[in-house]
Simulated scan of single mutants.
Amino acid sequence: MKTRRSKLPLGLVAGALVLSTVVAAYADSSNRIKYQQRVKLNVGQAMVVHGYRGDCGQLPTAARMKKSAERVNAALTTGRVQYGKPGVRRSGSCNGDTPAMELIFVATTPGRERVKVFGDDILFIVR
């Protein structure tokens, strides 16, 4: 049986295989992160409200997650956000599912506010 050899350096082939395997693992993940337009919680409760993606096909870096959480938290008065576990979300910009991290809203103060999160409006109602 004749085998076909790649003309790419072995390191590139191995790197591409690892990357595609990692992306495929997230794409097959059962953790589907859904965007919530309206969030109604009591003080002390928490809920996944959105998914934060990196470049299409990649999770965001820790530095990007930290900056985005700081930006969202600066706009919030009824709670704060933190990141959860990895999963996949639907992205119009990426034309389908892409790896993402859960964005979790933790309700801390009663009130009502509408905040733009990753370009999408979310209404937070905290009792």
Rank of each mutant, 00 (worst) to 15 (best):
T3W: 10
R4W: 11
R5I: 08
S6R: 12
L8V: 10
L8G: 04
P9E: 08
L12V: 10
A14I: 15
G15H: 06
A16D: 11
L17G: 15
L17Q: 14
L19T: 11
S20Q: 14
V23C: 08
A24F: 12
A24R: 14
A25H: 13
Y26L: 08
A27Y: 06
A27C: 05
D28E: 13
D28H: 12
D28V: 07
S29G: 06
I33M: 02
K34P: 04
R38E: 11
V39F: 08
K40L: 05
K40N: 07
N42H: 05
N42D: 11
V43E: 00
G44T: 04
G44L: 04
Q45D: 12
A46S: 13
M47C: 03
V48F: 03
V49C: 04
G51H: 04
G51K: 03
Y52E: 09
G57V: 08
Q58G: 05
L59V: 06
P60D: 09
P60C: 05
A62G: 10
R64C: 01
M65G: 03
M65S: 06
K67S: 13
S68N: 14
S68Y: 14
S68C: 03
E70H: 05
E70Q: 14
R71P: 04
V72S: 00
N73Y: 04
G79Y: 00
R80C: 03
V81R: 01
G84L: 04
R89A: 14
R90V: 13
R90L: 14
S91L: 05
N95Q: 15
D97M: 15
A100N: 05
A100H: 02
F105E: 01
F105I: 01
F105K: 04
V106P: 02
V106C: 03
V106Y: 05
A107C: 05
A107Q: 02
T109A: 02
P110A: 04
P110I: 00
G111E: 02
G111S: 04
E113S: 03
R114E: 11
V115W: 00
V115F: 03
V115I: 13
G119N: 07
D120A: 14
D120R: 15
I122V: 15
I125D: 09
I125T: 13
R127P: 07
